Amino acid sequence: MVALLAPAAIVTWSYVQRETYVADPAPPAPTLERTPAPLVRVLVFGDFGLHGRQQTAVARAMAEEHRAKPFDFGLLLGDNLYPCGPELSLPGAEDCTFSADENTVTPGYQPPEDKQFQAVFHAPLEDLKRADGSPLPIHTVLGNHDAGYSRSCFWTGKVPTRTSRLKACLEVAHQGPNWTMPGRHFVVDTPTARFVLFDSNTLAHDDYAFSFEEELAFVKEAVAGCGERRCFLVSHHMSVTAGKHQPETLTPAYQERARRLEEAGRIDAWLSGHDHDLQHSVTAKGYDVFVSGSAAKTRFEKFGPEPAPGARLRFGSTAWGFAVLEVFPTGWSMHFLNERREPLYCCEAHGQGRCEPVECPRGALPLTSR
């Protein structure tokens, strides 16, 4: 049974902490035709790069969920190293360079050991393993903090181009258990779904070291390759949000770039972090946007029913937690869970339809966390 923390009436505006905004307080029962196991099961979480009580609790819950019903892989939605990304003062860090494709690291480069990766990624996620003991792949994208876009790093807000290039390069170059980032952008393919991971700093920052036009060209080509499969965009930044970064997404330049990305081809949903909360919206274009950025650094939040003109917020929460995406023969679903693995919100998409709120399946999410 879904745990709805919002009052029965529809909320218009509210400041909440570890509470939930729900646009549809009485969802119908799930009707998705399910197989004994989904064709693809994906862990979706973001803004994870800060060690503390919240990260520890969420990481434990994700590992328990994986043991109960294994994931095929994970998607880490950026802001992997708070507050400023990789350390540039380490010997050899400034030697990192990109290949001519501006995406992959020059072959042969070995990055210095940056202890941040062990502290806030590898150690917390060490229990995410496959049945054979190998690490569960976590496919990772760049966030704004990874490239140095933080007031704690540069109070002027102007990040030197060389700095952002180096920081991005060092994250792509990093190697270690679970961590998978072969480039600033890449695709993850399964027989039934394609995940298009891209560097959304090009969407948000005019002074970023890399070109939005080149990123858009990659997204167009990658989306065209989805064919009949489910097609998901994956990035740190979102197209619409009802959270703290809403003013950023409503600027004319941001909206124009987001429009061009969403018109790259048919997509089922856009998966993102950036706001430190959990959200589900439907855009004016009719596709779903999910924010799963509550893994390590929740903040007070303001939610409202209209993330952007023509868009609608279906769900928003500041609970600690993560998301689970499942693809079935007849559709796909998204579940938000808190740090105790209790379901907060579930939705299901049938055929080419949108992900509609449903009551979370009984017994599908056994509670074993403390």
Results as ranks from 00 to 15, higher is better:
residue 26 A to D: 11
residue 220 K to N: 10
residue 144 N to M: 06
residue 232 F to A: 04
residue 236 H to S: 10
residue 313 L to C: 01
residue 312 R to H: 13
residue 350 H to C: 06
residue 72 D to I: 12
residue 244 K to F: 12
residue 75 L to I: 06
residue 320 W to L: 12
residue 364 A to H: 06
residue 36 P to W: 02
residue 313 L to V: 03
residue 257 R to L: 04
residue 177 P to R: 08
residue 351 G to H: 05
residue 342 E to F: 09
residue 199 D to I: 00
residue 69 K to T: 13
residue 200 S to C: 09
residue 184 R to V: 06
residue 243 G to A: 14
residue 359 E to V: 12
residue 342 E to Y: 07
residue 214 E to Q: 15
residue 30 P to Y: 02
residue 148 G to M: 01
residue 63 A to F: 12
residue 189 D to A: 12
residue 159 V to F: 04
residue 103 N to G: 11
residue 303 F to D: 00
residue 191 P to F: 05
residue 16 V to W: 05
residue 248 E to P: 03
residue 48 F to A: 13
residue 262 E to G: 05
residue 237 H to C: 03
residue 180 T to V: 14
residue 37 A to E: 14
residue 288 D to H: 09
residue 331 G to H: 03
residue 2 V to W: 02
residue 174 H to K: 09
residue 313 L to Q: 00
residue 290 F to A: 02
residue 358 V to A: 11
residue 84 C to P: 04
residue 28 P to N: 10
residue 225 G to S: 13
residue 341 R to W: 04
residue 185 H to M: 09
residue 308 A to K: 02
residue 204 A to Y: 00
residue 237 H to F: 14
residue 130 R to G: 01
residue 339 E to M: 08
residue 265 G to E: 08
residue 274 H to S: 05
residue 60 R to W: 07
residue 162 R to D: 12
residue 190 T to C: 10
residue 354 R to C: 08
residue 278 L to A: 03
residue 320 W to R: 15
residue 58 V to C: 09
residue 39 L to Q: 14
